[in-house]
Amino acid sequence: MEELLTFNYTIPGDDFTRAGEASSSVKNKLKKMGLDSNTIRKVSIAMYEGEINMVIHADGGTITVEISSEKIRMILADTGPGIADIDKAMENGYSTAPEEVRSLGFGAGMGLPNMKKYTDYMNIDSTVGVGTTVTMDVRL
């Protein structure tokens, strides 16, 4: 499939004040492309959740957003601790976030379930000790 436009972002690991900058930037670009608001909302929420996850769990990583005429693909790759039990991580409310993160209002255990909910396809490729790559598609 023809890939028309790609955006690359580096997500810093330890800075909560910057978490959400990448998803916000993508959201603004999608608005300028005249995509329907529901699609933008789905991409923006799913990507924000993923971006926050990278900050909380994986000391940052990279996000690639590929836009084609059929879909928007988001690839979130990190070299963090990996997810030991993906099925468990997908359960609503399950979280391994440390207490200091929860006290900031994050780590409610809704990140991955929300990413799944707002996308049409999601794949998690994770190896403990090596890292995690989450691929998500929102169809156009």
Binding site: L5, K31, K32, M33, G34
Partner: peptide, 20 residues
Amino acid sequence: PVFRLGESFRESLEMMGLVE
């Protein structure tokens, strides 16, 4: 949608590529 670059998604996408 006044901030949209082009008339269609396809056109806007191409224009966004040029903007980048």
